[in-house]
Design a protein around this nucleic acid. Structure first.
Lengths: 205, 205
DNA sequence: CGGATCCTTGAGTGGGCTCAAAATTAGTGG
DNA sequence: CCACTAATTTTGAGCCCACTCAAGGATCCG
């Protein structure tokens, strides 16, 4: 059974185009069909922190159902194709759809909790290791890992804004992980020969 | 109208007693009546990161309604008095109670987003400033600020585990804020003479 | 083929860490 | 209420991880 119905609209965004602005009324939720997007916060002096990543299959942002508005801006990291799910339609037909969105909220919450642990208590290498490990696992869940190979369409600047480091240091850490044979990461292609070894350096609980 | 009903039970926890263990089935949600508690994550080598704070009036943890289980342990930071809200009762009588819990999930989510920004992109002084600013505001909402004075029952070790620093450095930062006249913080009593000035050093968006 | 974006590397600096010990406060049992 | 112990706060000295500044190379795209 398809969870989408007649009212749902397909929509495209170009790279760096906003899916939502800061503190904006939202009368719909997106489901990402293709491409990556992120929620971010821009401080007064230009520092940027990415606070959520949206990959194909993810809802963006399920909590708009409850809040009716966005808190932080959401921007496309690549070309993005989404399905628009009008909140009116969801409210009118409660049931399965609502539960899926609420499950999405909880998933987002748990991912953010992990990020807090990472940012608060892990070293640079552990943070980057955690991130690549998480992304590899998420891509695997949606069948985007071929063999031990997948596509991570993030610039090193993007990665820096996720793990709270400078792009220069991210570059050095990636070089280090590469040299230790834990990952190969050239262009946008990530290869993880031994996922278990990578999650070892990610310093799990 | 009281949102609690006959099935709700009052319960007490001593300081350092667990309200929930890691990955445990939960058939109830707590509402904090008195005292402070926190969710935390313990890494293999002993590093601790606090990922949520629960103050009087907060639900702990509303997402258990949706997940049916706890992900991370929750521990009492002080003596704590809670109301137990059985999930069975909530499911049986959906409506207002459910909505309040869902609003609680969104509130938790937004607070965690702010913490990510703080941990990822702010300096030590900004992080401590943000935290004190947030706590002052939350305590004010629940009428726990008398004049410009309130009680923060956290040790400097606790604060360190929230803002991702060492207790030694937290001590130095607090000393600095005190010297600059932004806060007075001795014993467990926090005084904020000029809340606006404090939120200035917190580096808002 | 030209321009912009992104990646890489080097050299030097500094914010927050570690280690250590003393001073203060809080907690406990007699 | 006091003595004793444990927990917490404070301060000093020195170090290191990640940052800044800077320049050159690679890659992408029109």
């Amino acid at each position: 059974m398809r969870s989408s119905h007649a009212a749902d609209q397909i929509r495209h965004f170009r790279r760096h185009e906003h899916l939502a602005r800061k503190e904006e009324v939202q009368d719909k939720v997106f489901r990402i069909e293709e491409g990556w997007a992120c929620r971010y916060c821009l401080l007064a002096d230009g520092r940027r922190q990415i606070t959520a990543l949206f990959l194909p299959g993810d809802y963006c942002e399920p909590q708009w159902l409850l809040a009716g508005r966005s808190d932080l801006p959401v921007i496309a990291l690549t070309e993005v194709k989404v399905t628009e799910m009008p909140l009116a339609g969801i409210h009118a037909k409660p049931g399965d759809g609502v539960m899926k969105l609420l499950a999405g909220v909880v998933k987002t919450l748990n991912r953010q909790t992990d990020w807090i642990v990472s940012l608060g208590r892990k070293s640079a290498t552990e943070r980057v290791g955690s991130l690549l490990s998480e992304l590899y696992a998420r891509l695997r869940e949606i069948n985007r890992v071929m063999g031990d190979r997948c596509t991570i369409p993030l610039t090193q600047q993007d990665i820096a804004d996720i793990v709270g480091l400078t792009p220069v240091h991210v570059n050095r850490v990636l070089g280090d992980l590469r040299q230790r044979g834990l990952v190969q990461f050239s262009g946008k292609t990530l290869v993880v020969p031994h996922p278990e070894e990578l999650s070892m350096v990610a310093a799990a609980a």
